[in-house]
Design a protein around this nucleic acid. Structure first.
Lengths: 342, 342
DNA sequence: TTGTAAGCGTTATCAT
DNA sequence: ATGATAACGCTTACAA
């Protein structure tokens, strides 16, 4: 047998012909509508025999639905990667495809991303809420493209939202430190332009105040979510005349920075300072006796997002914006033991 | 002004009308062909005014090219994530879009992935070579869909290949340990079904043999690329009557496992054992004085892959399969110092 | 260099 | 429940 080169793909016409029905009938079959049992059977046989796969481009052209969902994040880190993974799987089961775009926190790239999604005609967009994106988002929603945001709130656009209870989780984490006997607790907090940054810092304050402990200015350091920020923070804390015995870090990158500084200076946790960190990443199981961490319910976040997107796409008019706030789990490990040395 | 709901998107027809030319002319403009200067000007104005964006579905239907490239990996880890990132960016500049699929090492999901890519009509597929995928790959190449593999070789299918020089890099890494005075060097090696697993182990052996050091069976442990494998390996090594003073780990996950065991048992590197690991990940900068690592040239790998895909897609008949092997860099850190204690 | 028109593979409308 | 047929928005001969 000679190789004719790539064989032409079977179309709905081929199926119709082989099954002895009209193409309309095949189309109805493909879209799950009712049809005569015998026809259904014939069509299934034909599809099988021809290896027919519906052409998404043709579907998109007719229906104006591409089945693609844009996913926009600042970076693929240890939080967003598993989230993307869950989302991809979930959407695929709904016959949808995820398109990922990483903007590196660059405003220009963020705009490019929106332009890209728009040109690709995605049916919906999932993104972390960002203080400097509202116009781009509005451009999408105005075109009827649903947007779901997570992580950070965003004022303005009419979009569904999925968050975690940052305030409560942070508060409980700091309460845990208090429970271990810590009284001098510092915090390296995230960007305050992000709602999660504000909420996590507020949780820290609420726990201290509820316990009657005054807030100390020296125990604050703005870490900007970055490794460097955490590095600077702990350096500052440890050189205070009266250093804290514990620190609450508002994300895992800043905690990385703190651990790095400790290493470089021959210190460690919990020996020299207790640590509780937002986010739970692999390193936190590996470092010493582990880092006590706040684990975000990633698969639940993904499910909530997917559910919002799906309903927006299938139910035409949902009047109000929906919002869901999920609880985090605190994972106790060695880094949050009682104050020891000094 | 009343909201009419989502406005209809401008089409090539709208542009043609507004510019006062035929749609064919607009199409030619969009495809970068020559046209009269005045027409070009009018068309650009019209496109700008209408916010026209070419509909990819319609293009795909006519040209049978979707502009999408499938990316298939077993997991999004610290190696594949930046690779995907680089590839996405690179392809986007070529007007192409990446579709990612994670198969978790599951053969069934791997087949699903191929089915998915096929149904999505991707123009090409990029994937890690896998010993149990040749039929799926052949199914694609037979249909004329170019496939580029990386990481591991795969016999059979006619595909382009991008690798790193595992053997040489591993050999140099172990030579480095030898240079530091180590003579008892163990290895936790990867899956031998993967060519990279075989090559990295061979590099280890070559370095030792070149130095006249006999290979010791006790100094081998199959780690299966997994964290658990590394954990078991170091446990075994450290309980030998005469433990090694250094170990070469064939990937970063196994090294994670080793570090974890060391932690749990109050040991550390390099104090108790020197470590050199394949892959360079963030943790390796954070642990103690750092873990000496073999860094794969991720952006070069991405560029090579993209270049292969692009040429296959633009140049119809490249007869022979191409293959490229890139060099790794060894990053010296604290974990590979000379033998010390005991 | 440009205009015209056929056709890509579906879905949806209209009869039947 | 089914068949016939007109679109959807492009690209690409073919003519001019």
């Amino acid at each position: 047998m000679v190789d004719d080169g790539p064989r032409r793909r079977a179309t709905i016409n081929d199926v119709a012909e082989k099954a002895g029905v009209a193409i309309g009938t095949v189309s109805r079959y493909l879209n799950g509508m009712d049809l005569r049992k015998s026809n259904r059977r014939e069509i299934e046989l034909a599809i099988e025999a021809l290896g027919f796969q519906r052409n998404p481009a043709a579907v998109a052209m007719k229906t104006d639905r591409t089945g693609m969902v844009g996913f926009l994040v600042s970076r693929f880190d240890e939080f967003h990667t598993p989230l993307l993974n869950h989302l991809s799987r979930g959407f695929r089961q709904n016959g949808r495809t995820m398109l990922a775009y990483v903007h590196d926190g660059d405003e220009m790239l963020l705009r490019n991303a929106m332009e890209f999604f728009s040109s690709q005609r995605v049916d919906a967009v999932v993104m972390a809420g960002s203080p400097n994106a509202p116009e781009s988002v509005a451009a999408l929603t105005n075109r009827g493209v649903p947007v779901v945001i997570f992580n950070n709130d965003m004022s303005g656009p009419k979009v569904d939202r999925v968050f975690v209870d940052n305030l409560n989780a942070s508060c409980r984490a700091v309460e845990h430190l208090l429970g271990m006997g810590h009284r001098k607790i510092a915090t390296c907090y995230g960007r305050l332009a992000d709602s999660s940054g504000r909420q996590r810092r507020e949780g820290y304050e609420r726990a201290l105040l509820a316990c009657g402990i005054p807030l100390v200015e020296d125990f604050y350091h703005p870490g900007d979510w970055s490794t460097q920020g955490g590095y600077d923070a702990i350096q500052k804390f440890m050189s205070l005349p009266e250093p804290p015995t514990a620190v609450f870090s508002a994300n895992y990158r800043m905690t990385f920075g703190m651990l790095q500084w400790l290493r470089e200076n021959g210190r460690e946790s919990p020996g020299d300072i207790a640590i509780v960190s937002f986010d739970d990443v692999e390193l936190f199981r590996l470092y010493n006796k582990g880092i006590t961490a706040i684990a975000q319910p990633i698969s639940e976040i993904a499910d909530a997002i997917r559910s919002y997107v799906t309903t927006r796409l299938t139910t035409p008019d949902i009047p109000d914006i929906r919002s869901r706030t999920l609880d985090c789990r605190i994972i106790l490990r060695g880094s949050s033991s009682e104050p020891s040395r000094r």
